[in-house]
Nucleic acid binder design. Structure first.
Lengths: 225, 225, 225, 225
DNA sequence: GTTTAATCGAGACGGTACGTCCCGTCTTTGC
DNA sequence: GCAAAGACGGGACGTACCGTCTCGATTAAAC
């Protein structure tokens, strides 16, 4: 999770240092919480690391010892919001599962610390490959997992046929993921409308019908009316 | 286009001031071009207004006389990229029209000045209603127009039935727009993959099949398999 | 007087810039006064440029625009104390003149802003030739002038013979100056005793007798008893 | 020598603690040597205690356990340079003795670790009485001893009359000491010229003639020419 | 041979000041 | 009255050291 030093909890077997005063684990928690609080109050652009340190009751140096900058810090702070992201208990149908995912994502984007924080780091990531990889690993991939789990469930239920071509299958999953995540973000942040249950149902319907048709029709058929 | 003073070109008849040296029209062009160049070289976060002024061969005061700040300036600079957005000549089918829109939007997002500039101002707009309105008026609405024009064309062609319920119709158009724009953005910036023709075809197919089904099936049918 | 930019008042004919807002002359005065006040209250080592700027009612940037650092600033601030250094009106005798110079120098070193400020910059100057030259020009040379004037007066009065060998004459003046200034500094700062009138008379007596003897006796006589 | 704890070697009888790991004697030596090395390389103002500790191969805590701060450490480090200060074997004349003292002091001030270190702690001592006392005890008094020894020798030789008034005698010794030390420091650090043998002879001559005259003439005679 | 206690290295900690960068405003001269 | 130029007060940056603290590991005298 840290940027400056490898996460110590990730590999408990390999302790990189055995000497010196150990880092305070409480500091990490306090800093991330303070970051989210500052995001809510001030937004990304007015958030300062000095202020975050003060809120966390921590020296600025402690903060810089763990994170390389504002971007990395906010990614970790926002990523924690996505840790609660779980595919809800089996709803009995693919449609209900998709709708659940959409609403869960919409609920996160309803939180002000996610709204400005998330888009801001995405904007920064357009010029920083490390940052994009960081976002992918700690924010995007956990979401994507839900899409893949949902498909597995649907296949178990028999709603979807088992996959034949793995590469085409991955491409489809990517497309669905971009559509779901992209639509929710665009609706919420650009169109500035709530992604409520009715809207989620509409999106789900279009997606399911589109996928059902795509599974049967040849891909090029639609371009030849 | 300006933020501080109403655009002089818009209403040439009503000149609010008649004395003193008139504002240089060339300065506006130079400033916006310099802004785009700085976005390409430096990205949003490292772009400074002082640097833009220097690049444009203009004093900082001149810049502040015309724009209220970085956000407003970048919105105008990026908005100019969307001026070229046009529904291409009738391709003969709804699918081709949609695909054209998708690719055109993808082409704009391929430009580095759009990538970071656009997302950054969207992030800022989450805490600034004026800015969001500004973005909507000069960037989002021109895109949305394409979706509406495409539907009209398809109705003229007979591919789509004429609208019955105007409110449901608007809701559907909004959904499509959020899906298209959101998917392209997510694919391009978050997943960091090119939105090429093959991908555009896949998205178009899902969309068309979804819409076709949604037009016939009752909305709730899918939730009751 | 400034370090960053050449003193504009020094060469009124050559104006280096004709455009832009001119520098505030009041700021210079306020900053130097604030520096002396901070020296009195805090001493050299606890003096911070940020604090000086605050006391002067000036931004830190304004201060850095004019001086390169703490050393240069303090040299100028202390140098102003030496501007008042004047050979007092003719006292009628060389002894009285010397005593006057000693007491005047002692009076300056009695001020706390001079005590720590002066020695600190001298210490720094041991590793910075520019700084030493700066000290020489604005602090030491004005003092030295008094010694030379005093000698001229004494020659006019007939107390001292006119100079024959200019180089030996300069060497003697340097020696006298090092003795006077060095003794006052050492007495005041190292021995930490007041250089009062009684002490000044003692120093003056030794100096005059030593010089009178040196003018008559051959230099090497004393080493051959 | 230490500041934090009483010097253990000074009073070997009174050991305040008898158990636990004893302090490393080698550490003291290494730290003082490292301090002098750092003074030579970096000068006073850029010398940091962390760097000294690293150079000495010692933890920062070890250093702080023995010295209270930079000032105290540097005083001890510089004081060691004055340990070698000895009145050279009897040269046969007061003049030669004085000249020897002057040259010996000049030799010490020729070393870069003394140049900036000494003046810097003197500057600090203007606001710290403990520090001044420390400097007096470990640096100034050893020098002063030479002056007193030189006078005793001269009296033994018959060059100087035995003292009659002890208080006036002490005053004269103080004056001579301030003149010698002050002149050498001023010549070396402020005038930035070498205090070589020729200069030392000049100073010695003035001093001896001055003292000889002062011993015979009434003090006030010179003010009434 | 244990115990005991102060030492050692290492390095994280809460702080303070640094000197720089940029902000958005202002005060000039000149067109 | 606008434009270029640049100084202004202000705020945040990221870094360097400060002097303190918490670690586990020595190390020698006391038991």
């Amino acid at each position: 999770m840290q940027s400056r030093t490898p996460a110590p909890g990730a590999t408990p077997a390999a302790a990189p240092r055995a000497t010196g005063r150990p880092r305070s684990a409480a500091a990490d928690t306090a800093i991330l919480a303070a970051t989210r609080a500052a995001l809510v109050e001030l937004g990304w652009s007015k958030l300062t690391l000095g202020d975050v340190a003060t809120r966390a009751g921590v020296a600025k140096t402690t903060l810089y010892r763990r994170w390389a900058g504002k971007n990395e810090l906010v990614v970790d702070a926002v990523a924690a919001l996505f840790d609660e992201l779980e595919l809800p208990p089996d709803q009995g149908s693919l449609a209900a599962d998709i709708e659940g995912v959409v609403l869960q994502f919409a609920a996160i984007l309803d939180r002000p610390e996610a709204r400005s924080g998330l888009m801001a780091v995405v904007a920064e990531s357009t010029r920083d490959d490390d940052l994009r990889e960081r976002i992918r690993a700690s924010i995007v991939d956990p979401q994507k997992r839900l899409v893949l789990e949902g498909r597995t469930r649907a296949q178990t239920r028999g709603e979807l046929p088992p996959e034949r071509d793995p590469s085409s299958s991955a491409r489809t999953a990517d497309l669905i993921f971009d559509v779901i995540a992209g639509a929710v973000v665009h609706r919420t942040l650009v169109s500035a409308e709530r992604a409520d249950q009715e809207w989620a149902q509409g999106l789900t319907r279009v997606l399911l019908l589109g996928l059902a048709g795509a599974a049967t029709d040849p891909p090029t058929a639609l371009n030849q009316p």
